[in-house]
Amino acid sequence: MIVITLSKVPPSLRGDLTKWYQEVQTGVYVGNVNAKVRDQVWERIIRDIGSGQAVMVYNAQNELGYQFRTTRTDHEIVDFDGIPLLKRLNQVKSPSSKKLGFSDAAKFHRIKMYSKRSKKSKAYQVKMPLFVAVDVETTGLDLTKDDLISIGAIKKGEDGELKKLSLLIQTDRVISPEITKLTGLSTEILEKKGVSLQVALTRFLEFIDDAPLVGYNLQFDDAFLSKSLKLVQEKTLHNQMIDLLPIVKKRNRFIDNYRLSTVLAEYDITNSTPHHADSDAEATFALAEKLIENQDLIF
């Protein structure tokens, strides 16, 4: 059991805690999570608490059966023969006099930040692997009924220059107003600027060759590509498939949601035209490079 009390903290921090704990009373949160999540939550509190205060009490193997942490500056946690005690200070410490790293969570935060800086410094020595970022747009979400209407792909050549492939694909299906609003593609546009499915997939296969394919929620793209390849009797994809979604979920436990737009904002990546295959592929490529630099993605 873990109990957290908050006072005078930003509303965003209260919202974050409700993902893991139940607010049984205003500012009082109760939950039962493992030690890793508990420490990450405390780290998030330390980071976002502003001028507020927080106390965390949790089970521990000591004489009392519990341990606690606090951000209060008028008290200090002391260890008395293995028993944690809260000592009231005669004078309230000013923020400038508070010793950095006064708690295990603060030390953990400093270690993590140092680790990130270390990763970034090493990243410049890491040679980027060859891969192709891919995204597709379709007439809908139903694999059995809907068709590919756009493919976007991007890779970096041996000269370091980005090489892009943007394909619009003709279809017999009428494009719905919802899909047009989302992708900017209409039946008229595809008739004028699109190519046949056979031509599009041939050019796509030539572009990707045998390079690993990277995507965000790649299962969706792979399913429509595989279905379309069978329709035109082209060879199936045997490329290595790397989906960035589960990697991001594993590395970012506290993100609000895992929509591509939210994840891109978390990594400071701009996507000028979302739900356009070429733009989404370019943004996915940038996300993959960030994950590689952080050593979260290793081929």
Rank of each mutant, 00 (worst) to 15 (best):
F68L: 10
V136T: 14
Y66R: 04
D280A: 12
D159R: 14
A288Q: 05
L168N: 02
P84S: 11
F299M: 12
E23Y: 06
E158N: 05
K235V: 02
D147E: 13
V41P: 00
I45C: 02
T18C: 04
V232S: 12
R203E: 14
D81N: 14
I151S: 08
G184D: 02
N294V: 06
S121Q: 05
L100K: 10
M56K: 05
I46L: 06
I255N: 09
V174H: 03
M128C: 01
F131A: 10
I298P: 00
E137G: 13
L260R: 15
L237Q: 14
Q198H: 10
Q91S: 15
E289T: 11
K230R: 01
S166C: 12
K290D: 07
I208D: 09
I83G: 06
L17A: 07
S94E: 15
S7H: 06
Q61E: 04
F285H: 13
E161V: 14
H238C: 08
I4G: 02
T71P: 01
A277Q: 06
Y66K: 01
L185M: 07
E188P: 02
I49L: 10
L225R: 06
A123F: 08
S51M: 01
S176W: 00
L143I: 11
S94K: 11
K145S: 09
Y124C: 04
Q53R: 01
M241I: 15
N34L: 08
T236C: 06
I242C: 07
H238F: 13
W42T: 01
Y66G: 05
L287K: 13
S176N: 09
N59F: 05
S103Y: 07
S97V: 11
K156H: 07
E23F: 00
D159W: 07
I208S: 13
K87Y: 13
L205W: 03
H75D: 04
A153F: 10
A265S: 14
P95K: 08
E289Y: 08
P274S: 11
Y58W: 09
T144F: 14
V214S: 07
G215M: 15
Y29L: 09
E293V: 03
S7L: 05
D16M: 15
Q219A: 13
G157N: 15
V78M: 12
L197V: 03
L100A: 15
G157A: 13
V9L: 00
V41S: 06
T71F: 03
V199D: 15
I298L: 04
